[in-house]
């Protein structure tokens, strides 16, 4: 058995995925891409996982790209198919396919020392794991074009300013911050989390009117759940709700 390239564990309904090739800057290779696909599929079947955190081992890189031939691996597209909230804890550099992986997550928290870039053009390629589509949707067209066409890296402060990351924290506090956010989410009703996320993520690709239809249908579907009754009753009785995901 080759060593695992991706660590996976679950604690208190939060799943942790850690890219674990720190000597190679957590670069994606065939084994890592395959494990990523397997684990993402497993998450979708696991009722106990409410929230997912993706991070990298070591303090240098989240993921510095991929081994050639890059276009043969996918990581972002399998992460994008996870149907729970996904937080990226960017502990270090997120470059090339590593940044594309981060872009497929819902929320990006970054270490103050992390750097970001899509250098594929310097080797005659273009980003091929969703970068040309997700980056402009997050930071706008002009900034995305600048990053892709120059291939230059930016620091955490600029990433925060342009909206590429949601929050910048001191390196030592990053995982704690991601964990606090994940725990907060995991205290909510699991089906509400999934539906709220679906309404936002799918709704952004629809017209407003179509999005409102989707929201209303998902809302009304929650009428049939025990967690809705529990949530409202707990509020009226001024106690903490006990959600079961049913």
């Amino acid at each position: 058995m080759p060593p695992n390239t991706l660590l996976y564990n679950i604690k208190d309904h939060v799943a942790y995925l850690t890219l674990d090739r720190p000597q190679e800057s957590n670069v994606i290779n065939e084994a890592l891409a395959r494990e990523m696909k397997d684990i993402c599929e497993r998450i979708n079947l696991d009722k106990d996982v409410y929230v997912v955190i993706i991070t990298g081992a070591g303090d240098k890189a989240f993921c510095a790209g991929s081994e050639p031939p890059e276009a043969s691996y996918t990581a972002a597209s399998v992460v994008a198919r996870i149907d729970r909230p996904v937080i990226a804890a960017l502990n270090g550099d997120a470059l090339g396919q590593g940044l594309e992986l981060a872009l497929a997550c819902d929320i990006r928290l970054a270490s103050a020392e992390a750097r970001f870039g899509l250098p594929q053009l310097t080797s005659g390629m273009i980003p091929s794991d969703g970068g040309t589509q997700r980056l402009p949707r997050i930071v706008g067209k002009a900034k995305a074009l600048e990053m892709v066409l120059t291939g230059e890296t930016i620091g955490a402060e600029e990433a925060l300013r342009i909206g590429l990351v949601h929050k910048v924290v001191a390196p030592g506090n990053l995982l704690g911050e991601a964990e606090a956010m994940a725990k907060n989410m995991a205290s909510k009703a699991p089906l509400s989390l999934r539906y709220a996320r679906e309404a936002i993520n799918k709704g952004m690709d629809l017209t407003l009117e179509q999005g409102l239809r989707l929201e209303a249908d998902l809302y009304l579907l929650l009428h049939t759940t025990q967690d809705r009754t529990e949530g409202i009753r707990a509020f009226l009785e001024k106690r903490n709700p006990q959600f079961k995901g049913e």
């Binding site: 989410m185 205290s187 909510k188 009703a189 089906l191 509400s192 989390l193 539906y195 709220a196 309404a199 936002i200 709704g203 407003l208 999005g211 409102l212 929201e215 209303a216 998902l218 809302y219 009304l220 929650l222 759940t225 967690d227 809705r228 009754t229 529990e230 949530g231 409202i232 509020f235 709700p241 959600f243």
Partner: peptide, 13 residues
């Protein structure tokens, strides 16, 4: 989401 519901007056959009 803490009440087991989602917004229904357009908030998610």
């Amino acid at each position: 989401t803490g009440l087991g519901i989602i917004p229904a007056a357009g908030g998610t959009q």
